[in-house]
Design a protein around this nucleic acid. Structure first.
Lengths: 221, 221
DNA sequence: GTGACGATGACATTTCGATGACACAGCGAT
DNA sequence: ATCGCTGTGTCATCGAAATGTCATCGTCAC
């Protein structure tokens, strides 16, 4: 396992790599975002430990922009207490973790090991159709930016439909993908769930069209 | 700076004091808890390095009982990897630290120096959410300024939730972080602990929200 | 118009979280 | 060693929320 530590505080530059090495990890060190970027270009790491604030910028911004290009290596942010407020930013992208300074070295090791083991998780994508956004990671749905709370089944059905926009999906497809094998294919659960889903998505035109004899599809009128 | 090393392994009895002396520290050595207790009674130390397991008992128990009497000298525990599971116990008192065997000697020095410098009166970070304050060092929680006494497990769970405010945390996450490996992931310990935590935090709106099928999260209504 | 299919409200069932009561282990005091 | 207390875990039960079933009504295509 190979880890990159990006840290500018001299004390932590010593302590963090030492701790990680004691857990049998190979550790490289960078002092700012520029050199981290270079190291990440050259080597493959299983995990990156980023200090939140670095001399040449905010590491979260850097990570966010790299994530946009599909970069998926897990990141652990070291953050000061007073930066906690904007912690949300750090978690827009799944697979990351953070630790508040000062931290127990014990905890650092545990987290880094866990992140490294986990491997590059493909960031759960956000599906979009018309004015609906579905965040598969957070299990959140927004319509026109407004948060809509869905039941588990409703979410699951909407997710399936949104992953095949404008395609007609049969009730059988839905039963097979969103229900377990115990589900009765003869019942009208799907219809009922669609009705409930529509009810929740009131706040715009009905995007779920019934295709007679075939199933349902997402379509913006 | 004067340090007491409590260690029974003959090899470490030599190596650890040698390392610390090389960092200009005055080092005394004890081979078991009984003689450590005596030494601590006679002398004033800036830091104590305790092996986790000693011939006459578990050093954590000893430290814990002394902490109850207000003893505040910072302690560094040397612990084997397989004792990691019960790391939670070790954190019942802030200001202490852990080092996992085998460790790098430089790391030991850095940590002991840091603990000694810090002195017995450190103020570790305080987590805040809504009107709840959690002092990780003093293991104290206040709601709207009023002191609330929590059990160790309750505290540990609240601390975990407060370190991830508004994020949904699964029961598995909680089990993994707040319980040792003996915990049964099938039981409802987490639910029970949450209930007890809620009961203690009465005195304001319920901040702990159950997210059906996913876990719990802290959220101000 | 009519027959098949979809929509939907009302109700039933299932699942899951909350909680009180109890059991047990560890620890301090005697 | 024994006893009692305190903290934590287990279990059974309760109740609410989520999901499924059913009956009825509407509507679309022929």
């Amino acid at each position: 396992m190979r880890v990159l530590v990006v840290e500018d505080d001299p004390e932590l530059q010593v302590a963090v790599p030492a701790a990680l090495r004691s857990a049998a990890l190979a550790v490289d060190l960078a002092g700012d975002i520029a050199s981290a970027d270079e190291a990440l270009f050259v080597n493959a790491y299983d995990c990156v430990v980023f200090d939140r604030m670095l001399p040449d910028g905010d590491s979260i911004r850097y990570v966010r922009s790299r994530r946009r290009d599909g970069w998926a290596v897990p990141v652990l942010f070291l953050t000061a207490m007073d930066q906690l407020a904007d912690r949300v930013d750090g978690f827009e992208h799944g697979g990351d973790d953070y630790l508040v300074k000062p931290f127990a070295v014990e905890e650092l090791i545990v987290r880094v090991l866990s992140l490294s083991r986990r491997g590059p998780t493909i960031r759960p994508p956000i599906l979009r159709y018309a004015d609906v956004e579905l965040d598969t990671g957070r299990r959140e749905v927004r319509r026109a930016g407004v948060l809509v709370t869905l039941r588990a089944k409703e979410f699951s059905v909407l997710e399936f439909l949104m992953s095949r926009p404008e395609q007609t999906v049969s009730r059988t497809d839905l039963i097979e993908h969103c229900w377990d094998s115990a589900a009765d294919p003869m019942s009208n659960v799907v219809d009922v769930t669609i009705t409930r889903l529509r009810a929740r998505l009131r706040g715009g035109p009905d995007l779920i069209q019934a295709v007679r004899g075939r199933g349902y599809r997402l379509i913006a009128p």
